[in-house]
Design a protein around this nucleic acid. Structure first.
Length: 349
DNA sequence: GCAATTGCATGATTT
DNA sequence: AAAATCATGCAATTG
C-alpha cells in the first residue's frame, strides 16, 4: 500500500514519494578521436551550440546511437593527443554536455542558477553504466561526466543552458582524477551488457574541465521558483552524496526509440525495477522524485507497471520533459541512483 | 470529434 | 527449445 495515489504531487494527498537520483548518460561511444562525427542516423540536428565552446564542438555527436564503436577506447586511454586540458577533453569529446555545464557555471555566476524548464525531470549524466561495477555505493568519486543535454533538441531553446549545478559536483577529490584515472572503458555502454565493468562512474569535476557545450536545453534564466525544488541545496546534497559515496545505482536503462518518443514514457528493466524501486503493489502509479545531480531540481515521474503476459512491464511515465530537456536519444542511458544515507533520498511519505 | 494519454497485446529478442 | 523480457504499435480512455 504505500503507493496509493497516482496523483502527482499535486494531488491532494501526498502520493507516495520515492526520492532518488536520476542520471542520464549519453552514449559515449564516440571514440576519442572522433572529431566530427557525422550525424549518422541524423540524430542530431544541427544545433548551434557551438556558441561558446571552442574546444570540442565535435563532441557533438557524442551520442551516436550506434554502439558500433564499442571498441572505441576511452578517450583517456586513447593515445591520441588530447587537445584539451586534462584528459577531460578527450572524454568530453564523447560527452558534450558535461563540459557545457562547466562552462556555464563559469560563465554564470555561481549563485545565479536559474533554469526555467518545465516542471520536472532531470537526469544526471553519468558514466556509471555498470551497476555491477559498483555493487552498491560508489567508493570514491571518479570522474563522471555529465552530459546534459545534447543538442538534438530541435527546438530548442534559446537560452543556452544556464549553469547547472556543476559546481556542486565538483568535488575536490575527484578533480584530480579525470580521464587519466579512468578505468578502461571498453565497450560501448550498453545497458544490457553489464558484463563488463569497464565503465566506472565518473564524477564531474571542476568546471574548468567542463566544456561549454551545452545543450540546447532550454533553460532560461527565469525564476528558480518555478522549479519544484531548486537551488543549490540540491547540489550540495548531490555533491555530498557523490563525495561520500552514499549512493548506489539501482537501475539503468539504455533508452530505446520508443522510450524517447513523444509519449514520454520509459520502459524500465523489470529486474532492476522490482529489485530497487518501490514496490508497485497496485496499479496506482507512484510518484518518484528524483534529484538531479546536475540541476538543482527534483524531477517527478510516474512509476507504474503494465500487466504483460504473465509478468509486468515497468514504466517510468511523464518523462517527456525530462527527455527533451536533456535531449536524450535512443542509445543514451539513464541511471537511477539511490541514496544510501538514511533520511535523504529514498524516503517515502 | 479530435488530440493527448494510458493501457494492453503482440512480436522480436534475449536468457 | 522454452520462457522471460522488452520494444513497439495500437486500442481504449480521457480531456
Amino acid at each position: 500500500m504505500g503507493q496509493m495515489d497516482g496523483g502527482d504531487g499535486g494531488g491532494g494527498g501526498h502520493p507516495y514519494h520515492y526520492q532518488a537520483l536520476l542520471a542520464a548518460v549519453h552514449q559515449q561511444t564516440v571514440p576519442f578521436p572522433n572529431p566530427f562525427p557525422a550525424p549518422s542516423s541524423g540524430a542530431e540536428p544541427p544545433h548551434p551550440h557551438n556558441h561558446n565552446h571552442n574546444h570540442n564542438h565535435n563532441i557533438h555527436n557524442s551520442h551516436n546511437h550506434n554502439h558500433n564503436h564499442n571498441a572505441a577506447p576511452h578517450p583517456c586511454h586513447t593515445p591520441t593527443p588530447t587537445p584539451t586540458p586534462r584528459g577531460f577533453a578527450d572524454w568530453s569529446a564523447s560527452t558534450s554536455a558535461f563540459t557545457s555545464l562547466a562552462a556555464h557555471s563559469s560563465t554564470a555566476p555561481s549563485n545565479a542558477v536559474h533554469y526555467s524548464f518545465s516542471p520536472c525531470y532531470a537526469f544526471w549524466t553519468h558514466y556509471m553504466l555498470n551497476k555491477n561495477a559498483y555493487p552498491t555505493s560508489f567508493p570514491a568519486p571518479h570522474d563522471d561526466h555529465l552530459r546534459l543535454a545534447n543538442n538534438n533538441h530541435p527546438t530548442d531553446a534559446p537560452g543556452p543552458a544556464s549553469s547547472y549545478g556543476v559546481e556542486s559536483f565538483t568535488s575536490p577529490s575527484m578533480a584530480p582524477n579525470i580521464c587519466t584515472h579512468m578505468p578502461p572503458i571498453e565497450g560501448p555502454i550498453s545497458a544490457k551488457e553489464d558484463k563488463k565493468p569497464e565503465i566506472l562512474p565518473r564524477v564531474v569535476k571542476s568546471s574548468d574541465e567542463l566544456e561549454t557545450r551545452n545543450s540546447n536545453v532550454e533553460f532560461h534564466s527565469e525564476t528558480v521558483g518555478t522549479l519544484p525544488e531548486s537551488k543549490q541545496g540540491h547540489d550540495s546534497r548531490a555533491t555530498k552524496l557523490l563525495n561520500s559515496g552514499e549512493y548506489q545505482v539501482i537501475l539503468r536503462k539504455e533508452l530505446t526509440k520508443s522510450d524517447v518518443g513523444n509519449v514520454g514514457r520509459i520502459v524500465l528493466p523489470k529486474k532492476d525495477a522490482e529489485a530497487s524501486l518501490p514496490p508497485l503493489l497496485q496499479r496506482d502509479p507512484l510518484i518518484l522524485h528524483m534529484d538531479d545531480m546536475v540541476l538543482p531540481v527534483t524531477w517527478k515521474f510516474k512509476y507504474r507497471y503494465w500487466p504483460n503476459n504473465k509478468s509486468r512491464m515497468y514504466i517510468l511515465d511523464s518523462a517527456g520533459e525530462f527527455l527533451k530537456t536533456h535531449g536524450l536519444q535512443a542509445g543514451d542511458v539513464i541511471i537511477i541512483y539511490k541514496n544510501l544515507a538514511p533520511g535523504k533520498f529514498n524516503q517515502l511519505y
